[in-house]
Amino acid sequence: MVRKMEWASKANHLQGLPRKTVIMAVGTFAKAVAVLLNSTSVHNADTLLDLVRSRPPGVPLITVSNHMSTLDDPVMWGFKGFPTCNAQLQRWVLTAEDICFTNMVLSYFFRLGKCIPITRGGGIYQEHMTEALERLSDGEWLHTFPQGKVYQEDEPIGRLKWGTASLIARSHVTPIVLPIVHHGFEKVMPEKYVFGRRPPFPLWNKEIKIIVGEPIEFDIAKLKQTAILTSRNSSSFSKEGWPPLGSLDEAAQRCLYIDISERIRSVMEKLRIIGKNLKV
């Protein structure tokens, strides 16, 4: 698969003016929806702000969150005090190729908005996952939705896709992993509003709650050793022809990604419960 307009995502594309224009326009929209049209509260915002603005040089950041609506990103970054319109500080985000990259205009727009196209069902070794790893190697901030699709039901967070876990394990520098859970976006942009379709515009007078957790620490070397030992006692994995990851064969990689994903899921579920009980 040919990379879709990767040149447009470069910071020096036309001296960075198109990117700055798109980020500023989208950031203004996000702030309008989050602050003017709706009421947004953020718990532990300083942790997120500090990591976005002043984490150690060269250390990448991965934020992970639940996925309640098609507006989660960018509106979740529109709260008061967040540098939503700063193109340099703004996140990269994994984006569904079949929704955001369906034609040349959309592809160009989302590339300028620092979006990386991901083919759902394409596996963790698809080409654009390598692109995501390159951004992490640059020490950038990457946001992912490890659930893989929108879930608007008020239910416990289920099994996560392995893509995020693989990025954490494969990154040259282990990223800082920050979990975030939000409530309310399902009311701002419900999937089935009129005739089973989304509304044409965001709804207003809704309450949005964003709960930022604390960074999850991963000792990747230790987790890899555990995965190797675990995989020796398991023969239930089907093989898809994954390349080795250092000393880890495909079975060990699967054990590793399951372990990392479950650690993230567990923390996100705790944040979800905190958010439900949090009084604004």
Score class of each variant (00 low, 15 high):
256 L>N: 04
99 I>V: 15
200 P>G: 11
130 T>F: 12
139 G>S: 10
130 T>Y: 13
215 P>W: 09
101 F>L: 01
1 M>K: 12
53 R>N: 15
234 S>F: 09
54 S>Y: 08
35 V>I: 15
104 M>D: 13
233 N>Y: 11
102 T>Y: 06
58 G>K: 09
181 V>T: 08
31 K>Q: 15
211 I>H: 06
247 S>E: 15
39 S>Q: 15
83 P>Y: 04
191 E>R: 13
113 G>D: 13
158 G>D: 07
121 G>S: 09
43 H>G: 01
215 P>R: 11
206 K>W: 08
186 E>G: 11
170 R>W: 02
43 H>A: 11
227 A>G: 02
220 I>M: 03
119 T>V: 14
197 R>G: 06
121 G>W: 10
71 L>D: 03
47 T>I: 12
145 F>R: 03
64 V>I: 13
62 I>F: 01
76 M>H: 01
105 V>K: 11
12 N>L: 06
226 T>N: 13
56 P>K: 15
178 L>G: 03
143 H>M: 09
163 G>V: 07
107 S>Q: 10
231 S>M: 05
147 Q>T: 13
119 T>R: 15
95 T>H: 00
124 I>F: 07
183 H>Y: 06
99 I>D: 04
174 T>A: 13
31 K>L: 03
183 H>V: 08
253 Q>H: 04
273 I>R: 11
141 W>I: 08
160 L>R: 01
12 N>E: 14
75 V>L: 00
257 Y>K: 01
263 R>M: 06
230 T>S: 14
216 I>T: 05
94 L>E: 03
242 W>Y: 12
167 L>K: 00
98 D>Y: 04
119 T>G: 04
119 T>H: 12
191 E>G: 07
102 T>D: 08
21 T>W: 11
249 D>W: 01
127 E>V: 10
4 K>V: 13
175 P>E: 09
164 T>D: 06
273 I>N: 07
171 S>Y: 03
98 D>I: 04
271 L>C: 03
162 W>H: 08
223 L>E: 14
164 T>S: 10
238 S>N: 10
155 E>D: 08
118 I>P: 04
249 D>M: 01
93 V>P: 00
46 D>M: 07
186 E>P: 04
246 G>T: 05
168 I>T: 07
108 Y>G: 07
14 L>A: 12
61 L>A: 09
216 I>S: 05
38 N>E: 07
53 R>G: 05
214 E>W: 02
75 V>A: 00
111 R>G: 04
161 K>S: 10
215 P>Q: 11
106 L>N: 13
2 V>R: 14
257 Y>P: 00
211 I>S: 05
74 P>K: 02
106 L>Y: 09
228 I>C: 04
161 K>E: 13
253 Q>L: 06
6 E>K: 08
126 Q>T: 02
159 R>Q: 14
198 R>M: 15
93 V>D: 05
108 Y>L: 11
218 F>E: 06
170 R>E: 10
7 W>T: 12
7 W>Y: 12
132 A>T: 05
250 E>I: 07
104 M>L: 10
41 S>Q: 12
115 C>N: 14
112 L>C: 14
199 P>H: 03
184 G>D: 01
98 D>R: 09
187 K>Y: 13
235 S>A: 10
55 R>I: 08
213 G>P: 00
198 R>N: 10
156 P>F: 01
47 T>L: 03
108 Y>R: 09
212 V>C: 05
38 N>L: 08
38 N>I: 08
187 K>P: 00
33 V>C: 01
63 T>P: 00
47 T>W: 02
47 T>H: 07
